[in-house]
Design a protein around this nucleic acid. Structure first.
Length: 816
RNA sequence: GCCGAAGUGGCGGAACUGGAAGACGCGCUGGACUCAAAAUCCAGUGGGGCUUUGCCCCGUGCGGGUUCGACUCCCGCCUUCGGCACCA
């Protein structure tokens, strides 16, 4: 008998699938009969290195889903590509001292080999790289559409600057004041940059989460927090002597009577004007400079003591005409609300800390419902059952009522209105780096900012000698490329030298897959509307608010522009957990990675595929165990020997029947339900192992040959989505063909109905016996049978049975 | 601090709707095969106790509660992980 030789089996079937084009899915033609179709998508890899075990989990998960859906009769779109531009690839290239294009292409070739070696059922005819001109041509085209719609714009702003990567970062790429990629502390810089107006879509990005079919709750929560919608009011305060109105945003208009001072952000445009010519001018301007120089992380830390200076000016509170001193402090953010706040130290912790520090008055205007105001306790935390005090005609109203009443009162005097504020900022998309998609914009001395005409796309990334970042884009060094002529006036113009954030490239790749060779348009809208939305998207949790928010935004803009016919790109989302090894998250920097290639070489691709899914729930973080994969390798050997033995025994006589056949049908039902309804991938493997174990016992009995054959074929068929090579090989040896396109087995409902069951008998809730009884007995008959059991009788011991609980088909509980 | 998820044998994990806790795998123990080893096959394996064919007690982070019955539901804690965090 042949030994199980994964390398030979896997090579054979991978070649066969390639030859047959087994997983190539052409787009439908109008004359084709309609077919049920589905789009299974996994996040595309960055080619900054080779695939790691996390990728193996990701793509194997998708492969199981794709295989089972094909066998359910669906046409399955299952493409792949490479998110090839961007910092990771460029930094890898710099480390190696090579050109980013060479390093990227080399890594792509390596990843492609790994993917093929793992035998994933991918439609390779749709493969794409976001760094190829035939792709980024259309990234640029989309940018121009956004620009025409006013959704891509340039402005000067305080931005996050990473001194190590020498580029600006989007808000989403700053984690605790540090660069998401390299971990360096981020600085604040005032620069003119390109932005996407994602804030215009804040409400829709929030509201449309309701329409998603199935997304993990944690991702929805993260996006909700990130968008950060707050309802409140805008209230206009007035500096009488300068005749200036300053609006503030507040979620607590009910505390307006408790305002005792007023604070401007150091970046507020009115600060200089207010201070000018007053005795405070020098002190205020010193403070503004000091705040600007503070590291972002330090400024943002609420644990730090509050700092600030008084301007010596006063502003009038519109509800009671109180004159409040105006201070400047960096605890007020220019980016949120209006950059100015009314300070209510009695009811806001930050204002309270500031008031304590600078000995400013504290006035309580909210009290618990019992009306007791503590004289000593200055700060009152927010609660639901509280009423206003010391607030003129609004006193004794509850907080919610007062919010409404005060805003209405302000509105009638044109000193305020209801308002909504978002935490979300516009997406800063320009990067001062070489390896990215050029921004198709020109600057002309006569005409100003001019978009590159569509016919001139793509703007090719120029070759430069020096691409190491130095604070300005390396593209600026390509003088011949930068200098061009204005398409409007024909005069001299210069090209934009910044490149786009990689997340722009990956915000629409899933659409390009539908029509990847199109050179007239980014895609045929009909094809995109046919395949999208993605039925199942699978990827890492790290993109919960980056890629997944951006892609949703892009889709909504394209919908508004009439380019696509749907508003959400991904109907169902699944995030796999992270892999740990030796107690820590697997990562190159920690040196605790398990290299897929080594494992594949030692055990074959399929033991690896099986083990990554067997480890535990796919969505949980899990610990890799070296011994674990050996168990899967042993199982595959066991399945192999069983399959060959049954194949060699040849055809059997008579109908398969008996407990093993019943068992096989139960396994069909469990595996199908676990994968398709519960999206659970570890327990189906356990179920098939059990079936194989039972079959090993049964095959000792020659009477059961037909049942053994049936159970073996069922096991091979059910495990195929996980280990398609060995399954195909065995299937063929068992006398069949093309398991990959063979209908998924159906469980016979008649066989799932049991004729007898094991009745569990409890006395006072404790299990005291069990007995095999026929199904369908009456309750009192079950109780009678239960009482007959010797152990049960011993525990009843002549006592009176007060109550008997009967759960049909399961148990009897006798209460004494 | 706020929000979310999770705590089950020596280990990874099962137990779906409140009904036999520990499926399956790893590890370990014993046996078969072998000159021997590997591989393979079979059996056992939560803890404690006893009058050991078997029976009893304890047991799902901790403390309460609901229920005939709780890993599962409720209340209060503890711990771990993830996210957010001067967002007015």
């Amino acid at each position: 008998m042949d030994r199980y030789d994964p390398q030979a089996i896997e090579a054979r079937w991978q070649a066969e699938w390639e030859r047959e084009g087994a997983f190539v899915v052409p787009n439908p033609s109008p004359e084709d009969a309609p077919r049920e179709h589905t789009y299974v998508l996994e996040m595309l890899p960055y080619p900054s290195g080779e695939l790691h075990m996390g990728h193996v989990l990701n793509y194997t998960l998708g492969d199981v889903v794709a295989h089972i859906r094909r066998r359910r009769g669906f046409t399955v779109l299952r493409p792949i590509g490479y998110d090839a531009f961007g910092l990771p690839a460029e930094n890898a290239a710099i480390r190696e001292g090579k050109h980013p294009r060479d390093v990227t292409n080399r890594n792509i070739a390596a990843i492609r080999e790994q993917m093929k070696r793992l035998g994933w059922s991918i439609d390779w005819s749709r493969e794409l790289s976001t760094a190829e001109p035939d792709y980024y041509h259309w990234t640029q085209w989309l940018f121009l559409k956004f620009f025409e719609a006013g959704l891509a714009y340039r402005k000067g702003a305080i931005v996050n600057w990473c001194p190590n990567d020498q580029t600006v970062l989007a808000n989403e790429q700053v984690i605790d004041g540090h660069c998401e990629r390299c971990g360096w502390e981020v600085e604040a810089r005032t620069l003119e940059q390109w932005f996407f107006r994602i804030t215009a879509y804040a409400d829709r990005l929030l509201d449309d989460m309701e329409t998603l079919e199935s997304w993990p709750e944690r991702v929805l929560t993260m996006q909700r927090n990130w968008i950060g919608r707050s309802e409140g009011a805008e209230v206009i305060f007035r500096i009488e002597e300068l005749d200036i109105d300053i609006p503030v945003f507040t979620t607590r208009p009910d505390t307006l009577f408790g305002a005792t001072f007023f604070v401007l952000s150091p970046e507020h445009p009115l600060v200089e004007q207010l201070a000018k010519g007053t005795p405070h001018e020098e002190e205020v301007m010193d403070y503004v400079r000091h705040a600007a120089g503070r590291p972002v992380a330090e400024r943002a830390d609420p644990e730090n003591e509050k700092s600030g200076v008084s301007t010596g000016r006063f502003i009038t509170n519109p509800v009671n005409d109180n004159r409040l001193p105006i201070w400047v402090s960096d605890y007020v953010l220019m980016e949120y609300g209006t950059g100015a706040i009314m300070a209510v130290p009695a009811h806001d912790e930050r204002d309270y800390a500031f008031a304590e520090r600078f000995e400013l008055p504290i006035k309580t205007v909210i009290a618990p419902a019992d009306g007791e105001v503590s004289e000593d306790e200055a700060f009152v935390p927010h609660s639901d059952d509280e009423v206003l005090v010391d607030s003129a005609q609004f006193s004794s109203m509850t907080s919610p009522d007062a919010k409404k009443a005060i805003v209405e009162w302000l509105e009638s005097r044109e000193r305020g209105r209801p308002a909504v504020s978002f935490r979300l900022r516009d997406w800063l998309l320009s990067r001062q780096r070489y390896w990215g998609c050029p921004i198709p914009i020109l600057y002309c001395d006569e005409c100003g900012l001019v978009p590159v005409p569509e016919d001139d796309l793509p703007v090719l990334l120029p070759e430069v000698e020096e691409y190491v970042p130095k604070g300005r884009s390396p593209l600026a060094a390509a003088e011949d490329w930068v200098a061009t002529t204005c398409p409007k006036c024909g005069g001299p113009a210069r090209r934009e030298t910044d490149t786009m954030d990689t997340f722009v490239d990956s915000s629409w790749y899933f659409l390009r897959y539908c029509d990847p060779q199109n050179d007239e348009a980014p895609f045929d809208p009909g094809m995109v509307d046919y395949w999208l939305p993605v039925n199942q998207y699978i990827g890492g949790i790290e993109h919960a608010i980056l890629h997944l928010l951006y892609a949703r935004f892009f889709t909504k803009v394209m919908y508004d522009l009439g380019i696509v016919g749907f508003q959400e790109p991904f109907a169902r989302l699944f995030n796999q957990g992270m892999l740990h090894y030796r107690g820590a998250k697997m990562s190159k920097s920690k040196g605790n990675v398990v290299a897929p290639d080594e494992m594949v070489e030692r055990y074959g691709a399929e033991a690896v595929r099986l083990y990554v899914l067997y480890m535990g729930p796919a969505e949980d973080d899990k610990e890799w165990q070296d011994a674990g994969i050996e168990g899967m390798f042993r199982f595959l050997g066991r399945l192999w020997r069983l399959g060959l033995e049954v194949a060699e025994a040849g055809p059997t006589e008579g109908e398969p029947g008996g407990p093993l056949v019943r068992r096989a049908h139960e396994t069909i039902a469990k595996v199908s339900d676990d994968i398709e309804r519960r999206f659970q991938f570890n327990t189906p493997i356990a179920a098939v192992i059990e079936l194989v174990n039972d079959t090993y016992v049964a095959k000792e009995d020659p009477e059961q040959a037909a049942a053994v054959r049936f159970a073996t074929e069922t096991a091979v068929s059910l495990i195929q989505p996980y280990v398609p090579h060995i399954a195909e090989e065995l299937w063929q040896r068992l006398g069949h063909e093309r398991l990959w396109s063979t209908a998924w087995p159906e469980a016979d409902p008649a066989l799932l109905e049991r004729e007898t069951f094991e009745l569990v008998v409890q006395v006072n809730g404790r299990v005291r016996g069990r007995v095999e009884v026929p199904a369908g007995l009456e309750d009192d008959e079950l109780v009678a049978r239960a009482k007959e059991l010797p152990r049960v009788a011993a525990h009843l011991d002549g006592k009176e049975v007060k109550n008997a609980i009967v759960v049909p088909g399961r148990l009897v509980n006798l209460v004494v």
